[in-house]
């Protein structure tokens, strides 16, 4: 008995001492400053006006490079676009059709149940045209990207033109505070007043960044408003039911306990 215990202890010691290596220093991750968003928290809801402005920014600017494959034009009813507006929007996009009788590629006007048109025929083509890195699809960007909305906003407003004096200058790369290594191939997308919002909101860079961030968060989680609302009702129902069930249980068990 004693012998086995000692053996075990020895084996354990040998086994345990093996991995004593030092931990490599991990670079400090960039934590963007927190912004206040309507859609934050367990009860947050989207502001449809902001979503519609944000879609405008996406459609005019981002979508020239970034696809949003998972969405269909019809899905935009979720940001409050009317059926007619969606039909017109889809119709204005030329979508690749099937090859014609002689095998030539064709295109046709989009329809509401088409997926968003991708700016490049394939990821390879995108990478080839964009200097080696394909612009990522934005369907779920806001949920995949750490710090989602806060980072998107910080990034979109974080370009420095001209770059700080001590920053390395690489042709075809732009300085941004919020990317690894501070250099990115994507040029600054937003400029003051480069679009005009139909609702009259001044289209500053900050405003556009906020709006398109909201839109990207919506695209990544389109049912958030409904989810929070339904959840609230379900919780209320369950609490009511719980009260009833506890009363019933107590009443039943009184027969056992109260003697």
């Amino acid at each position: 008995m004693m012998k086995t215990t000692r053996l075990l202890a020895l084996a354990a010691a040998a086994f345990l001492s093996a991995p004593l290596t030092t931990l490599a220093a991990v670079p400090e991750p960039l934590v963007p400053p927190h912004q206040k968003w309507d859609f934050d928290g367990p009860f947050g809801q989207f502001d449809q006006k902001a979503l519609q402005r944000g879609f405008m920014v996406y459609d005019r600017i981002c979508s020239t490079c970034h696809g949003m494959k998972a969405l269909t034009y019809n899905d935009l009813s979720g940001i409050g676009m009317s059926e007619q507006a969606i039909l017109d929007l889809a119709h204005s996009k030329m979508i690749a059709g099937p090859p014609d009788v002689s095998g030539q590629p064709t295109s046709r006007p989009g329809r509401p149940d088409d997926h968003f048109r991708s700016p490049f025929p394939s990821d390879e083509a995108a990478a080839a045209m964009m200097g080696g890195v394909a612009p990522p699809d934005q369907s779920r960007l806001a949920v995949i990207q750490p710090h989602g909305a806060d980072w998107l906003y910080a990034f979109l407003t974080g370009y420095k033109m001209p770059p700080p004096a001590d920053a390395p200058v690489v042709p075809g790369k732009f300085y941004n505070d919020w990317v690894d290594g501070h250099l990115i191939g994507m040029p600054p997308p937003l400029m003051n007043g480069m679009i005009q919002y139909p609702d009259g909101t001044p289209a500053t860079v900050e405003q556009q960044a906020r709006d398109v961030t909201s839109f990207l968060v919506w695209a990544a989680d389109p049912h958030r408003t409904a989810r929070h609302r339904t959840g609230l009702w379900v919780v209320l129902y369950l609490i009511g039911l719980l009260v009833l069930a506890i009363a019933w249980k107590k009443k039943t068990w009184k027969r056992v306990k109260s003697q």
Binding site: H228, T230, G231, V234, V235, L238, I239, L242, A245
Partner: peptide, 17 residues
Amino acid sequence: LVGLIIFALIFTALMFF
């Protein structure tokens, strides 16, 4: 039943919020 409803509340909180 009481246990199930409490469980359902946890379920709901995770799923919806």
